[in-house]
Computed example of a mutant assay.
Amino acid sequence: MADSGGRSPVSAPPRRLVVAVATYRRPQLLAGLLPLLDEQARAVSSEGLSTEILVVDNDPEGSAGPEVTALTLETPLTLVSEPRPGLTAARNRILDEAGNAGLLAFIDDDEQPSSGWLTRLLEVMTATEATAVTGPVESSPVEPLDMWLKGTEVFARARHSTGTTRRALATNNLLLDLHQVRDMSLRFDPRFGLTGGEDSMFGQSLLRRGGTIVWCDEAVVRERVPEDRLTRAWALNRATRSGETWVRVRTVDPPRLRAAGLRLRYAATGAVRWTLGTALALISRARGDAEGLGRHQFSAAGALGMIRGALGRTIVEYSRG
């Protein structure tokens, strides 16, 4: 039907949703993930919403290429190389490649989405108009955990009621409203590129600029925990790095005097927690309580991370050197 001016009405272009994966030398896991993302994307595609899949390969040698190009998917798939090392470079490349898309979903290359994952994220974003919607990660270790690792709860992830407002996000399960993200001029901070925590910093920046983060408990992704992470050394290193990151994201941008005061406070808090955790670990060891020993040593490692973060020390977990 023509409009009053004799012209045919022009329908609005469909919204664009990009489902993105940053990958580094995990071609087989990626090859298993992409067909699942194809199913997720096709389930939400409509006349009003077009979907695409984006893979950013952070390996300068292009290890993802053969696996990706061998796949036949119905959803359009783009593979780009980002040789600059670090998570920040890969995630900012995703933001750049998404272009004028309205929506951007993140998932890690070692995860798999549950049925309806993307649908649920979109439903909550539509209902809440949040800047970001995030959801749970369920970890499945390849081997049974010993009592010490069980005590740490390092693989136990928090769950919340759908619609709950959150104060943090992670890019392993995330949907962003890119219109709001661009209006806030949000990017991933290069200071966290090789240490990790770039998503924590992104979330804090989002909140400081008036954005909102909402939880969707039905949008589950699952990760298989490999054998090399089922060690005490890995768990304690993760706890220490998490403590460092928690402090860094809260002290990296405030004015110098305020940042110094915060670092002093967090260092003191960390010292108290380290002392308590160490004492309780000694008691657990004397009692032969392996689970309690793991819990308290893990807590002490996190407290040590707070002290290190307050002193400006960081573990460079993603160094390629």
Rank of each mutant, 00 (worst) to 15 (best):
R91M: 08
N237C: 08
R25Y: 04
P60E: 07
V142A: 09
L121W: 12
A301G: 05
G62C: 07
L186S: 07
R273Y: 08
P85R: 08
S319C: 06
P13V: 13
G193V: 14
K150E: 15
L73G: 02
H179D: 06
S8W: 15
G294P: 05
V44T: 02
A267M: 06
M201H: 05
D96A: 13
A235H: 08
A127P: 05
S45T: 05
S63Q: 15
V181R: 10
L257E: 15
F155T: 06
L236Q: 06
E244A: 08
L236Y: 04
L257K: 15
P255K: 13
A43M: 05
G305C: 02
E61S: 09
L17M: 07
P35S: 07
N58C: 14
A239H: 04
G193M: 15
G294V: 10
A259Y: 01
P190D: 14
S50D: 09
A12W: 13
L174V: 02
F192A: 05
R273P: 12
D253S: 10
G32C: 03
L54E: 07
S115V: 05
G116I: 01
L207F: 07
G309K: 07
L264R: 15
V142Y: 12
N237K: 10
T195A: 14
S114V: 02
L71M: 11
S139C: 09
G6F: 13
A98F: 12
Q112L: 01
A89S: 03
V10S: 11
T195I: 09
N172M: 11
L178I: 01
W117V: 01
R166W: 00
S81T: 12
D109W: 12
S185P: 02
D199W: 10
L230A: 13
R258V: 07
Q40N: 00
T119C: 00
L17E: 06
T195Q: 09
S185H: 13
W215H: 00
G102D: 12
G270M: 01
R93N: 08
Q40F: 00
L176R: 11
T164Y: 02
R15C: 10
W274N: 15
V56S: 07
W234D: 15
P113N: 03
S161L: 06
P66I: 12
G102Q: 06
G197D: 06
P226G: 10
L149G: 07
T134E: 14
T72L: 12
S8Y: 15
L304P: 01
G292L: 13
L145R: 00
A235Y: 03
Q297E: 14
V316W: 08
W246S: 09
G309S: 12
L87A: 03
L175H: 00
L17D: 11
A310H: 11
S63E: 12
L49A: 08
A156I: 09
R84N: 05
T195M: 12
F202D: 04
T278K: 13
M1H: 14
T212C: 08
S4I: 13
R93W: 11
E52A: 03
M184W: 08
L30F: 07
A219V: 00
L280P: 05
G6V: 02
R166N: 03
D177I: 00
R208S: 08
R167V: 12
I213V: 01
R295D: 09
T131D: 13
L49T: 05
S46G: 01
L311R: 10
G211Y: 09
G32F: 10
W274A: 15
T165H: 11
V55L: 03
T278R: 15
R285L: 06
I283C: 11
M201G: 00
F155M: 04
L17Y: 01
T119I: 00
I94N: 10
E82R: 02
